[in-house]
């Protein structure tokens, strides 16, 4: 894409500022605060306007250093999107699975999965990078610092009791 990347970023925040302003109108006001100089809507209104004005300035004004302008195509090309997407997916799976399988199992799978996504194929390294780290951390948190970490639904389904 032959679009200047700072303009693209500003366009993105412009859309966010407009959406923010629209939702700011929907902030409920209690009767007494309607006549106040500063109510719950005042700052969001001002921020929305500021966001819109500054993003428009970035979009409209020429870039400060024209020689160093990078296009979106240049900025985003050659990057390892596939691995980053996999890693993001793994983070989501980790977050969603933790209440079910518990901290220890979910964390071991996250670390092992992350190491594998980044290209590690040596099974020994994968195991060393995941199991000892998570077990030691779990031990420190629960046994040394006395934190309570829920074991996960699976633990109870399998008949476990605390």
């Amino acid at each position: 894409m032959n679009v200047n990347m700072e303009k693209m970023g500003a366009l993105f925040i412009l859309a966010f500022s407009i959406a923010y302003g629209i939702y700011a109108v929907k902030i409920p006001l209690i009767f007494l605060s309607q006549g106040e100089a500063l109510n719950a809507r005042t700052l969001p209104y001002a921020l929305s306007v500021a966001g819109i004005v500054i993003s428009l300035l970035i979009i409209i004004l020429p870039s400060f250093d024209k020689d160093k302008v990078t296009t979106v195509g240049e900025a985003l090309s050659g990057l390892d999107w596939r691995r980053t997407a996999w890693l993001t997916g793994l983070m989501l799976v980790y977050s969603l699975s933790m209440p079910w399988v518990g901290f220890v199992i979910a964390s071991i799978f996250f670390m092992a999965g992350g190491v594998m996504i980044l290209g590690e194929r040596n099974f020994k390294v994968i195991l060393i990078a995941s199991i000892p780290l998570v077990v030691v951390l779990w031990f420190l948190l629960t046994k040394v610092l006395g934190m309570y970490i829920a074991p996960g639904e699976l633990f109870y389904i399998l008949g476990g009791t605390e």
Partner: peptide, 16 residues
């Protein structure tokens, strides 16, 4: 320290 271990480690500690 290989990045294969370092990066998942950073992300893991952040989430935890």
């Amino acid at each position: 320290v290989p990045r294969n271990i370092l990066i998942p480690g950073i992300i893991f500690f952040s989430m935890i």
